[in-house]
Design a protein around this nucleic acid. Structure first.
Length: 650
RNA sequence: GCCGUUGUAGCUCAGGGGUAGAGCAACGCAUUCGUAAUGCGUGGGUCGGGAGUUCAAAUCUCUUCAACGGCACCA
């Protein structure tokens, strides 16, 4: 039998040779480093015999694949440790995830953080025992029966649901065994000790909120201690960039119980917000958008017609249109409400109302209707998360009403604009998903074909990589989702672009076509920032609070060294303030070290430090955030340079 | 919404049935200082809300609210 290697070399072996033996035949060191083997693209155990010609790649512990195996095996060892320590706990699944693994357990009493310490200790024991991973293929019914007899109902359910052609493989490690597709490393000793259990959490069985709640334990695992330490350090550093922490430290915004999920923007935070709003307004106006403002509170009749009442009701805040009871006693309302209004969760139906005023010609299209629309969504309590997931949000929303033949052009123009904007903020790691037709949908398949094709084509012609999310599109049309990651690696959807063939018809929108007949326009729902709240959250984390000068709430502090220079500092401040710069004056009776430290911690990008010397020569000492050197310039030059540095990118 | 954890001064946190603590911040006084913390002093709390156990609750129990970590959700 012939075996081909990644470098193209071919060797011949006896049938039945194992991966480990192949590795040994090449080099002892290779056999030592090997943890698994890839056979014709599938990962196998080293101990599994090969029976036919194949292409192989020996997986070393040091490789990325090796790391995934370490994590997978650590998850198994954790499951074993848990069952040794807590008999009666049921095992379920334990996959490898980014930076580590988790395992879900079925158990009446969830684990506590203290239990993690004991589990970790037991895991180290099991690894030191050096148990051999042994693969066995079982009869499906026997396997189901075996796990049922052990009371492992979840595992039995998994086996019953395996595709019929798939082998039911079971791995033994010492006295313990688990259903697993494999492969595993030769022994538990190969795992090493560079792992740590990080957190306990609840998770639904099969990700279904109607099913049982399991206990999930997360862990991280690495090839060696150094990697583990580096990872833990990285997490620690990332937590310092958390926008909730920085928001408090930098006095940007706060939240409180009485308005959960809604932001109290402080003057400094709202400065950032306003700069962004001004910026995006300049951007879209240049691209031919018009701006509107629509009502917050709208009668339910419109939401029923638009379909939101049917599809989005549980996320809406509904207000009864009844006079409240003024008596202290009794119910809130004088009478049972019969008429309801809802605070808008989206702007689209309102924009259609504006489109519907008067008669539109095909020549009027496209109409790009923008609104910095403030929306409220009744998000589940557990979903709320700082600025990233709020109940009151303002979108940089717009709806493009266009003809079918304009879709490609409009989508392309939007994606270009989107990228221009994100580049201005230094966001380059943008993950695009194209969500396609869901099972339950409106509109003809022919239209969907055209729409999905147009959206894919737009990205392709722009040379942008994307991933499909099959079946994840809106019921009314396909969409793009633009994702960015926060400080600790969580992915958030920012901008979006959605084609809609349904709403204009539901809300009776028409234009008169070239043929003289009425047609429904196509609507493109799109947002660049997504919401100001989430965008600012990601922005803060991405800059670690050190915002670019055009966004910084305070761009420059003018600080005096001693009281002698206070008048001069005041003069500089007045002059810069008059020029519209965001400056602060610090003439407190404090040492310059104290002032520098305080403003540095507040992440003010620039300080103009002035003492008697500067006052005498009409100069300033410029200190940039984090910089060691000071730069002495004449006042005029310093201000001119500063103004240029504060310019917005657009 | 579900599982778990946490709520003590403006902030960060200690304490854990018997008079409420620290550092920073604030305020006052002194100090006039050259690029990341000058010194001394003073004030500050219904220990998240409600109920219970107890002679006595910040501490124990129940309940409720919020935040945090996940899960589910995110047209």
């Amino acid at each position: 039998m012939t075996v081909t290697f990644p470098d193209g070399s071919v060797r011949s072996y006896e049938r039945g040779i194992t991966g480990l033996e192949i590795a040994e035949s090449i080099a002892k060191s290779l056999a030592k480093a090997a943890v698994a083997i890839e056979v014709d693209g599938t990962e196998w155990d080293l101990s599994r015999p090969l029976h036919k010609d194949c292409t192989v790649n020996i997986i070393k512990r040091e490789s990325e694949q090796g790391l995934a195996l370490i994590r997978h095996d650590t998850a198994h060892v954790m499951a074993q440790a848990v069952q040794e320590l807590f008999p009666g706990t049921q095992v379920t699944i334990g996959p490898v995830i980014e930076n580590g693994f988790f395992y879900d357990f079925g158990r009446k009493e969830p684990f506590s953080t203290d239990d993690l310490v004991a589990i970790e200790k037991k895991m180290h024991d099991i690894i030191d025992r050096g148990e051999t991973f042994e693969r066995e293929v079982w009869n499906r019914d026997d396997a189901i029966q075996y796990f049922k007899d052990k009371g492992e109902m979840f595992k039995a359910e998994i086996i019953a649901d395996l595709p019929p052609q798939e082998d039911v493989s079971v791995y033994k490690q010492g006295a313990w065994l688990d259903l697993c597709r494999g492969p595993h490393m030769p022994t538990t000793k190969h795992i090493g000790h560079a792992f740590k259990l990080t957190k306990v959490a609840g998770a639904y069985w099969r990700g279904d909120s109607d099913k049982a709640m399991l206990t999930r334990i997360y862990g991280t695992a690495w090839r060696d201690e150094k990697e583990l330490e580096a990872y833990l350090h990285m997490v620690e550093e990332a937590e310092k960039r958390d926008h909730r922490k920085l928001g408090k430290e930098m006095d940007l915004f706060h939240f409180q119980e009485e308005a959960q999920g809604s932001v109290f923007w402080h003057p400094k935070g709202f400065t950032i917000y306003n700069q962004l709003e001004n910026y995006i307004r300049r951007r879209i106006h240049a691209r031919g958008y018009v701006e509107v403002k629509t009502p917050q509170l709208i009668d339910n009749k419109l939401w029923e017609k638009s379909g939101h009442w049917g599809k989005f009701r549980e996320n809406m805040f509904v207000v009864p249109d009844v006079v409240p009871n003024t008596d202290e006693e009794g119910s809130i309302f004088k009478e049972e409400p019969t008429k309801f209004m809802a605070i808008k969760p989206m702007n689209c139906p309102a924009h259609v109302q504006i489109f519907n005023q008067g008669i539109k010609s095909y020549r009027d299209l496209p109409i790009r209707m923008a609104e910095m629309g403030c929306c409220h969504r009744n998000e589940a309590h557990g979903a709320l998360h700082g600025l990233m997931r709020v109940r009151q949000m303002t979108q940089d929303d717009a709806h493009i009403f266009c003809r079918e033949d304009q879709i490609l052009e409009e989508v392309k123009a939007f994606v270009q604009l989107f990228y221009e904007v994100y580049k201005d903020f230094g966001f380059e790691d943008i993950h695009i998903r194209l969500a396609t037709r869901p099972e339950i949908r409106a509109g003809e398949d022919a239209i969907w074909d055209k729409a999905e094709q147009a959206m894919a084509e737009a990205l392709e012609t722009l040379g942008l990589a994307f991933e499909y999310s099959p079946g994840e599109g809106a019921f009314y049309g396909p969409k793009y989702e633009f994702h960015l990651k926060d400080a600790i690696g969580r992915s958030w959807q920012m901008g979006t672009c959605q084609l809609d063939f349904v709403l204009p018809a539901r809300l009776d929108s028409h234009y008169i076509g070239e043929d003289g007949n009425k047609h429904h326009p196509v609507m493109i729902h799109r947002a660049i920032f997504g919401t100001f709240e989430r965008f600012i959250g990601v922005l803060i984390e991405s800059f670690g609070g050190k915002l670019p000068m055009w966004l910084a709430p305070v761009q420059c502090v003018i600080a005096s060294i001693t009281g002698d220079a206070n008048d001069y500092a005041q003069k500089i401040y007045d002059r810069m303030f008059a020029q519209g710069l965001r400056v602060a004056l610090d003439i407190r009776n404090e040492k310059i070290n104290y002032k520098v430290r305080e403003h540095s911690l507040a992440k003010v990008p620039v300080m103009f430090v002035v003492g008697q010397r500067e006052a005498d020569d009409n100069k300033v000492a410029i200190r940039r955030l984090g910089g060691k050197d000071q730069d002495i310039k004449s006042l005029d030059e310093a201000i001119e340079t500063f103004i240029n540095a504060c310019k917005a990118p657009y």
